[in-house]
Design a protein around this nucleic acid. Structure first.
Length: 579
RNA sequence: GCGCCCGUAGCUCAGUCGAAUAGAGCGUUGGCCUCCGGAGCCAAAGGUCACAGGUUUGAGUCCUGUCGGGCGCGCCA
């Protein structure tokens, strides 16, 4: 509707020949106040200066050029400083029911994406332990955003980047092996920098079950001449690095690989399963270790964007807008995380996506400039990459703030959260706030079965409608949309529902353009609210003798149910028939 | 110190690339069940949009500064 009006006004402006060279940036907006009609156009105010006319005079000229026989427009008024207010006909609003019932799941989809390809990379947590509640927000946001962009006509590819190479994974492998040695009966001083969680024991136990003591070494041999850990007055980094090297020596390539791979496989499978249970699925899981070539770095070197200093290889990122230069290869010969990230982004670019979206935790915001710098240095347009930052979520149980610490393996996992509040509530709560906003996640509220809980409030609207259609089948009444006389939907309650239904496509488009799925959660709450108000309003019983009105109200309800289902599906929440 | 994000009702937050009288939920107070699911509905109270300037016909929204909160500033990931 909005787009349609925009076309009408654009045409009218051309007819009015107000200014030759204007590239018109006027807007059609929903009004806040019903007295201002349904939509307002600000064209006259925006163009007044260029046209050298007073806004209200200009508005009058524009209106002259609007078609007079347009069936969707009841009347047009000039108001306030020069708004052109458009009042739609009842007919225009009633048409939305037919649109919805015809399009069904496709109602609200748009073609603004025009089939452009978008790659969304999200979560991408290191496979060194289970996902925690912080990852959950990125997962819920990324999945909802992907659905939104799909609904807006983009071709979306979701990907999880698996950091299966590098030091953290080696630390995990050593952690598992040391736990395994403990299971064999060795006494081990477990390093402070190793992974402490119980899941490390589980992986070690599976190795012990399958391989017996084949991987056993004496603790004395393992720790002989290893630099002291931090609790012995040493350095925890040197301690763990030496243990990694020692483990590789003692186990040999094949056995070390066995431990490493087992740890990776078990944890990755756990993450994959966890996300699947959360309703988050990917097109691809991209392995960092598959990026073995050094082409990205070679390109940077060849283009003269790197230099050696203090034994390390540096990327001159400051020449591309970063605060300072960054190391690609450490003095000890190891590639930095940044180096592999550049390779990954080159790979993404080469795969030809029109647009790249990365969803990162807000603590990584300092990282954005350097990745964009690398893209520029590789000759790509940095605008092709959008990095969306997600703030952390703080869990509350009522008023009590829950402490989360990743130290000593005590954290609230995504799985625990899901098991406590359920998938629907978790998905909804995670995205109901703007992503760059801190999120207070109240477990009590998320679990409550009342209107206090927005998830239940919305789902209840869907369920109530399902209930009425169930009740219908137990009466002698039937629903025939063809026999519905929609002009009978004339009460303010029914009108409010129609107006809200007609907004849905605009909400999808806006939410997709701004990458803000939370707008959809607010919309769904609005829709549920106008529905509940209609349903509870005096004299608005649905299952009534009056054929025309009954069919009309049933059609209205079917339309509400369809839109609720469409919207809930996008944010990853179920639309239950019964609750 | 520098950079990024955020300051809107008692609390949690919306506010659509600047528009008309700033909205919702919770909480508080008061109403509504002979009626399709009351897991609901109706109503009231509650605001110097952190503060100060600026741009504009028009600013919660854009710009500058101040104050307050969060995060980041490694040859960690």
């Amino acid at each position: 509707m909005k787009q349609y009006l925009h076309k009408l006004f654009t045409h009218a402006l051309l007819q009015a020949e107000i200014s030759k060279d204007m590239v018109v940036e006027f807007r059609i907006e929903r009004t806040r106040d019903a007295r201002h009609g349904d939509f307002a156009c600000n064209a006259a105010m925006v163009l007044a200066k260029a046209a050298r006319m007073r806004p209200r005079d200009l508005a009058a000229r524009i209106i002259e050029q609007l078609p007079t026989d347009e069936p969707s427009i009841a009347k047009v008024e000039i108001a306030g400083p020069g708004f052109i207010n458009v009042f739609l006909t009842q007919q225009a609003y009633r048409a939305v029911i037919g649109d919805i019932l015809t399009a069904q799941a496709a109602y609200g989809r748009s073609q603004v994406g025009a089939g452009q390809s978008v790659m969304i990379e999200f979560v991408s947590a290191n496979p060194t332990g289970p996902l925690h509640v912080g990852h959950g927000r990125g997962a819920a946001y990324g999945a909802a955003l992907a659905n939104l962009l799909t609904a807006a006509g983009f071709n979306v590819h979701k990907e999880y980047y698996v950091n299966d190479a590098g030091r953290q994974m080696d630390i995990l492998a050593v952690s598992v092996w040391l736990r395994y040695l403990e299971l064999c009966g060795e006494t081990v001083a477990f390093p402070s920098n190793a992974y402490q969680g119980d899941y490390v024991w589980d992986i070690a136990a599976s190795l012990h079950r399958e391989h017996g003591e084949a991987l056993r070494q004496s603790a004395n041999t393992v720790f002989k001449d290893i630099p002291a850990d931090v609790d012995q007055g040493g350095d925890k980094e040197l301690h763990i690095d030496a243990l990694i090297e020692r483990s590789q020596q003692l186990l040999g390539d094949a056995s070390y690989r066995l431990v490493f791979q087992r740890a990776l496989d078990v944890i990755l499978e756990d993450i994959r399963h966890d996300l699947e249970q959360f309703g988050v699925v990917y097109e691809a899981w991209f392995s960092e270790s598959s990026l073995s070539d050094t082409r990205a770095m070679d390109q940077l070197k060849a283009a003269g964007h790197t230099y050696m200093q203090d034994g390390a290889l540096w990327f001159r990122s400051s020449a591309f807008g970063d605060e300072k230069d960054r190391v690609l290869v450490r003095e000890n010969g190891q590639f930095t995380y940044f180096a592999s990230d550049i390779a990954y982004h080159l790979n993404k670019l080469e795969r030809g996506f029109d647009h790249l979206i990365n969803i990162w935790g807000a603590d990584h915001h300092g990282y954005v400039a350097r990745v964009k710098a690398a893209m520029m240095a590789l000759g790509a347009d940095a605008e092709r990459l959008t990095v969306l930052l997600v703030q952390f979520a703080t869990l509350y149980r009522g008023k009590e703030r829950l402490q989360m610490s990743t130290r000593s393996g005590e954290f609230v996992t995504l799985r625990e959260l899901r098991e406590e509040v359920g998938r629907d509530a978790a998905r909804f709560f995670y995205i109901q706030r703007k992503s760059e906003q801190h999120l207070n996640f109240d477990l009590e509220l998320a679990k409550s079965n009342s209107k206090n809980n927005p998830v239940y409030y919305i789902q209840y609207a869907h369920t109530r409608i399902a209930g009425v259609f169930r009740a219908l089948s137990e009466t002698n009444f039937v629903w025939h949309h063809d026999k519905a006389r929609l002009e009978r939907l004339e009460s303010k309650y029914e009108q409010a529902v129609l107006v809200t239904l007609s907004r849905y496509p605009e909400v999808i488009e806006m939410a997709a353009e701004t990458y803000e799925p939370h707008q959809l959660t607010y919309y769904l709450h609005d829709l549920a609210e106008v529905f509940h108000t209609f349903y509870d309003a005096p004299g608005h019983k649905v299952l009534i003798e009056d054929d025309e009105l009954r069919n009309a109200r049933l059609s209205l309800m079917a339309a509400v149910q369809q839109v609720l289902r469409n919207g809930l599906t996008i944010i990853g929440v179920s639309a239950p028939e019964v609750m």
